[in-house]
Design a protein around this nucleic acid. Structure first.
Lengths: 336, 336
DNA sequence: CTGTTAGCGCGTTCAT
DNA sequence: ATGAACGCGCTAACAG
């Protein structure tokens, strides 16, 4: 690769002039300018982002660490982040924590070591204090994505989980449901915690003990308990607080030979792709994942521009997509 | 941030010794070593990957540009790539071309400018010659992912598309199907081209003109023509050569009020998530996306190690997942 | 076993 | 309007 020196030499100018036409950072005589442009063309010069980053003490890159790169919801967030970053001529450095606290710290450390200009984090459920400490000590620009941390000193982007669950439940109550099975999952994850809160917000005061809520950090545990709860047949509607949980619940129903919505209604958060093409068509609270990614970048860039502005939280609206899985309900199936 | 100089000073040694304990690149007296470790701890030093990259002329990073970051199949490949890269202490720089040739060249240029140690490319359908030229001129280590280019001088990872389509068709023929509708899509994409070839490989010599193949680069065009073909009701089985095409075809069927598999059998490549939980359960040729990502990294690292070894192509086996969408078929529904 | 020092390629003063 | 020269933080010769 040719360097700025080669260009300067072939153009018969100094490196500083080349640098200035490259960056448009000071006026240059049209003639010299053209000579330089020609020299760049001729030498096939392309500037070295590494050296540039070193000199400017900024990399024009942002780092993102997600807790599960395989999950479509996170993939969409990453997609949104990439999109918004590219629009600002920033590149994206991606790391995956795979829901592992240890890998998460390592990822943050690595990205910090790479001197990314900012960090977007979808922290994992059991995210270690080491991460918070790292973020506090090094104090890089940070935006927390998807999983909010109450009262945290960081910018955050997440969905209106609590409100969305509230409207969902209100809708289902109006439709006559009185006994829910909520597969709430790992409620240490704020997203799931908020959805759980929304549930209790909306459920009528009377008959509260008719509901069953399954909270657990362990997937197998969730599976077992969900199966047991489903087997009782006491519930008219099952709600899954996330896509993985919906999978577990639907598998449970399938194994019991019960169908949706004939035997029981069903609703889920986040949802499956192409729900309109398959049965049961699942009523879904859809997360605006792509937009969340975009919003995170916006917040991050503003934060980079104003390091000590006070932290902001952006909450994005979710869309309630009503479908067949909650439609055929006519009267409570619960034994009285 | 403190630098290596700070560490050296507080430890009372030279920077080179610090560097050497950091990298384990030459023996150091245990006592000095400990002093340095303490100094690192005390100063909160973390080495600057940018400066290191500059000096070593390698970044320990690999770049990947995918043609659609939103598509689950690509998300899984990225996931695999990240996984394998992280295992080798390499970080991943992600770019998305969004199936746009222009953005693709820009992405490659950007990544090259960032001096990534290697490049993994899922090139877009109308990938411009500029990319090939760039890759030839700059000659960075490159692996082409998913979309193979016949006789190209690059390492490649893709699936055994042709063979898989062949087995799928053979299976369906044995099941009695004689008139297929193949939604082949943009056959400039080698993946789709190969699947098309596999189709003609397997289809019996007689009755070839009973099949309809829809080839087009334009999504709307595909939609219209698929709808028309479906409307004739002449086919006993519809095959979609990719997930987006499957969506189009299934939408067409839905709009015509025809159900799978009662009215027509259906099979698709790549497939949908959680096919076992929904109806119709689509018979699928599943792409080992994650493994393809891992394989790409393996190939890339070997290429980085041996720049002028001759190019290799790795083909990964796909799994045929038989499901209900091709099961209820008993006798041809075609009018004779 | 340890230290000195020369760059890597660039942006940016400070001169002219 | 242009150039000379320094240094970002680090690694690797080379010297001791």
């Amino acid at each position: 690769m040719s360097t700025i020196v080669d260009v300067a030499r072939t153009a018969g100018v100094s490196t500083s002039t080349v640098s200035h036409v490259l960056n448009g950072t000071r006026p240059v005589q049209p003639a010299t300018r053209q000579r330089i442009l020609d020299a760049i063309e001729k030498t096939g010069y392309r500037r070295d982002a590494v050296a540039r980053a070193m000199r400017r003490a900024r990399t024009d890159s942002i780092g993102i660490v997600v807790s599960d790169a395989g999950e479509p919801a996170f993939a969409e967030m990453v997609h949104g982040v990439e999109h918004a970053a590219a629009a600002q001529d920033m590149t994206l450095v991606l790391a995956n924590s795979a829901e592992d606290a240890e890998r998460e710290v390592r990822a943050v450390r690595t990205l910090l070591g790479r001197r990314v200009d900012g960090l977007i984090l979808a922290r994992c459920a059991d995210s270690s204090a080491a991460v918070t400490e790292l973020l506090t000590v090094e104090a890089p620009p940070v935006v927390l994505l998807d999983r909010a941390f109450g009262g945290s000193p960081f910018d955050q982007v997440s969905a209106e989980n609590r409100e969305s669950m509230r409207s969902l439940i209100e809708h289902l109550c109006r439709a006559g449901h009185t006994r829910f099975l909520l597969v709430a999952g790992d409620t240490r994850v704020s997203t799931l915690q908020e959805r759980l809160q929304g549930f209790w917000d909306a459920v009528p005061r009377e008959g509260r003990d008719g509901h069953v809520v399954i909270e657990s950090a362990d997937a197998d545990d969730v599976r077992r308990r969900t199966g047991e709860a489903l087997a009782t047949g006491e519930h008219s509607c099952v709600i899954a607080a996330s896509t993985p949980l919906a999978v577990t619940a639907l598998e449970g129903l399938r194994d019991l030979g019960r169908s949706v919505p004939e035997d029981v209604a069903f609703a889920a958060f986040d949802g499956f792709a192409h729900s309109d093409l398959f049965r049961p068509a699942i009523t879904t609270v859809r997360q605006p994942a792509f937009e969340m990614g975009v919003a995170a970048v916006t917040l991050l860039l503003e934060r980079i521009g104003a390091r000590d502005a006070s932290p902001r939280t952006v909450r994005l609206r979710q869309r309630l997509e009503l479908r067949g899985s909650t439609e055929d309900y006519r009267s409570p199936r619960v034994p009285d």
